[in-house]
C-alpha cells in the first residue's frame, strides 16, 4: 500500500495541475492579505474560496484524475496486489496533493503575514472538504463508465451541497417560521458537509450572533468544545462515508 502510494504521490505531485492549483491558491491568499486590513477580514474572504472553490476543484480534479489513470489502475489490478490497495493509494494520493496545495498555497501567506485561530480552522475545513469531495468524485467515477457522466455527477453534487441544499433549508425554515426550528435547522445543516465546514467557521467569526439563540442547548453547543466536537465528528463521517462506498464499489467493479 505505502509503496503504491509513494509512486502515485510522486506522479501526482509532479503534475502540472498540482503546481497551478497551489500557485492559484497562493495568489488568491496573497491578494486577499494585501487588500484586507485585518485578519478576520482575511478569513472571511478566504472562507468563501474554501467553501466554494476548493470543493469544486477537488471534485473535478479527482474525477479527471481517476479516469486519466484508469488504464494504469487496470495494469495495477493485473499485479499481485489487493484491489483495495490500488484504490486507496490513488485516493490518498489525490487527497494528499489537494491538502498540500492548500497548506502551501494558503499556509505560506499565513506564516508570512500572521494567522489566528479562525484561519487555522479554515485550513482544516479546506482539507476536510477536499477529502469529502474527492470521495464524492471517486464514488461517481467508480459508479459510471463514462468520464463526462462522472464529472457531471461530481459537479451536480457540488452544486447540490453548496447551493441547492441551502436553498431547500431556507425554504424549509421560511415555510415553518412559526415553529421552533433551531434544532431541526442544526440537524439539517449536519447533513451537508459544506454547511458543517461553514458552521465551524461561523463558530469562530460570528459567535456573538450565534449566542443569540434561546435555549441552553445552543449556548452549550456553540460556546463549548461540544459543538466543535460534534461538527468535527460529523465532518469526519462525511469524509469516510463516500470514500468507503467508493471502495466497496471499486472492489466489485469490472474493468
Amino acid at each position: 500500500m505505502l509503496k503504491l502510494l509513494k509512486y502515485a504521490l510522486y506522479d501526482i505531485l509532479k503534475s502540472r495541475f498540482a503546481l497551478i492549483y497551489t500557485v492559484f491558491l497562493a495568489l488568491v491568499a496573497i491578494s486577499i492579505y494585501q487588500v484586507s486590513d485585518d485578519l478576520s477580514k482575511v478569513s472571511l474572504s478566504l472562507m468563501n474560496i474554501m467553501i466554494m472553490i476548493v470543493p469544486l476543484i477537488s471534485a473535478v480534479f479527482a474525477t479527471t484524475h481517476f479516469y486519466n489513470n484508469l488504464e494504469f489502475i487496470e495494469l495495477m489490478l493485473a499485479q499481485p496486489v489487493k484491489r483495495s490497495q490500488v484504490f486507496l493509494s490513488q485516493l490518498f494520493a489525490v487527497i494528499i496533493m489537494l491538502s498540500l496545495s492548500i497548506l502551501i498555497g494558503f499556509g505560506l501567506p499565513m506564516m508570512l503575514w500572521g494567522a489566528d485561530s479562525s484561519l487555522i480552522t479554515l485550513l482544516a475545513v479546506g482539507i476536510i472538504l477536499s477529502a469529502v469531495f474527492t470521495g464524492f468524485a471517486f464514488l461517481a467515477s467508480v459508479m459510471t463508465r463514462d468520464k463526462a457522466k462522472a464529472i457531471g455527477i461530481s459537479l451536480g453534487l457540488w452544486i447540490y451541497f453548496s447551493l441547492v441544499y441551502d436553498g431547500f433549508v431556507l425554504y424549509f425554515i421560511y415555510s415553518f417560521a412559526d415553529y421552533p426550528l433551531e434544532k431541526a435547522t442544526l440537524a439539517l445543516v449536519m447533513l451537508n458537509p459544506v454547511d458543517l465546514g461553514r458552521i465551524l467557521m461561523l463558530m469562530q467569526l460570528d459567535i456573538s450572533a450565534l449566542m443569540g439563540y434561546t435555549g441552553a442547548f445552543f449556548q452549550k453547543f456553540f460556546s463549548s468544545s461540544m459543538g466543535l466536537l460534534i461538527a468535527g465528528g460529523t465532518l469526519m463521517v462525511w469524509m469516510l462515508f463516500p470514500n468507503f462506498f467508493a471502495l466497496r464499489v471499486f472492489r466489485k467493479r469490472d474493468f
Binding site: S162, L163, L170, I173, A177, L202
Partner: peptide
C-alpha cells in the same frame, strides 16, 4: 426567523 442565522455566509 432566528434559526436562519445558521445559513449565514452560505453561497445561497
Amino acid at each position: 426567523i432566528p434559526a436562519a442565522v445558521m445559513l449565514w455566509r452560505s453561497f445561497m
